[in-house]
Amino acid sequence: MIDIEKNMEATFDKSLKEKAELFNLDEKENKLLIERYSYTLATTPYAELKDSKEYLETQGITITKAREVKVLAHSIQILKNKCSLMGEAHEMELYRLDPVKLNLNAMDLWKKIKYCNQINVPYKNEDGTYKDFLFDEKEFQEKTGKPVDTTVIDPTPIVEEAEVKEEAPVINESTVPDITMTINADLTKALEDIEPRDYIETPPHIEMSDYSSNNMINDFQKIENNATSFSTLQENVKRQMDALNNEDVVNPMDMVGFNDIEPETFNAGFSRIRGYNDKGETRRDDAA
């Protein structure tokens, strides 16, 4: 059954004002959110904002200021990864005290904290807040004598006009970022800044024999123009494909009865034989 309300929510996103109301900010912060920091609200659907906000609240992280809303520009999966990493390190207080820190690279933060522990440099104040040097690369190096080894990922490689691209390594959407894990086994499940990617199944491949593809295309074009009843067509084309698969080449024009069928029907039928359904999706299971 379709959840009508949820469907409508997804189709018709709410206004900026309605999205801002999600956060129950005071009047001043609410005004700031809409006037200055509204890009996240404008570009993130209400449902996603709501889900992410609610997830953070389960972790004890509450958004109380306009400028903190931008952390919801991360997908909920990334927020979960970051919380998981800091949670395992028992440093969730870092996010609870200042939610904006969710924007920082969690792996880098984790490394810095680990290093501070190793060399016995305090990174927290007496009141439990985190020292500023933890969040500034230059200050961290000055305090600890060591720069943090960071991997810069440019997630959206855009070629800028008339400019030589000399930036950090670029990740294409078709590849998975290679992040070197230098943490112990307990934290290996935490993947920083990687969004789940759907596996796309490739269509079935039919091996061709010596019958050249050009000849085949020409002949099937003739078939398209002179089609016959669909079931006969189905049968004949299947026989032809089997023959080709078995390297027993048969010229399709030798087949009989290709008249009076609409090209669309031919195409649909041919697709079905090849293993696709009417929507263009694979149907290996059906074929099996």
Partner: peptide, 21 residues
């Protein structure tokens, strides 16, 4: 500096980086 830009790319949500671009 390149370090500033690297810091921005490494510590910001992808959506906002795209917005700036």
């Amino acid at each position: 500096t390149k370090e500033d830009i690297a810091y921005f790319l490494n510590n910001s949500p992808k959506k906002l980086i795209d917005g700036v671009k």
